[in-house]
Design a protein around this nucleic acid. Structure first.
Lengths: 104, 104
DNA sequence: CATGATTGACACCGAACGGTGTCACCAGCA
DNA sequence: TGCTGGTGACACCGTTCGGTGTCAATCATG
């Protein structure tokens, strides 16, 4: 519901694209006053990775991101997009969603 | 097997490791009664990727995951570790980090 | 039984990632 | 002024990811 904003407030931030995740990483890193190098060492990745990820490189290894987020005291969540009407036969509802998706 | 709570409940699911994300993907896919092939086409990735990711391959491209989650009507969130959990542990750790690097 | 769909699995291979190292640029400070 | 730390940006290179193609096993269905 909330738009993208600074993370330190205790809110979840939706990651629609890599760029947004990158922004989150960078923001948090600066917030923590960590250098790219420090973050990289903390997360066990190379500074190049941090630099390139923050720069918005579209391809990045998920495992690295998880570790970096961990080093930043952030976490990754997976959540349903249209969560709500989910009953015993959730498949039906989801099927509808899918159909809609299909027709575009 | 179903180690992780299925997602269809409308709750966010923390992704601590790739395996958990994989489980989420697989669970949701089955929930939607999509074949690996269908999901792959929907997400614009290869069936191999879906298969391998679900199989728990540790390395995966973030962009692909995002697209696959999208195709599954799931989303990815980044949230502070101490967001939902009330544990002061994270805060303390963060404080320590901050202090160390501010004065350092 | 025969047919089709689904899935796990493998080989092949080009492309890209990611690490290491290195450079220049810039801000801050003694 | 010179020095240091942080950063963006390269080259080089081994690794391996991801797509295509293919195969057999499994299961449901006609």
């Amino acid at each position: 519901m909330e738009p993208i904003g600074s993370i330190g407030e205790g809110k979840n931030v939706l990651v629609r694209s890599i760029g947004e995740a990158a922004a989150q990483v960078r923001g948090r890193r600066l917030q923590l006053r960590l250098s790219q190098d420090q973050l990289a060492q903390r997360a066990g990745v190379s500074r190049k990775w941090v630099y390139e990820f923050e720069a918005g490189k579209p391809h990045a290894e998920l495992g690295h991101l998880v570790r970096v987020l961990d080093a930043l005291d952030l976490q990754l969540d997976v959540s349903p997009r249209s969560a709500s009407s989910e009953s015993a036969q959730g498949a039906v509802d989801l099927d509808t969603i899918l159909e809609r998706h299909r027709d575009g």
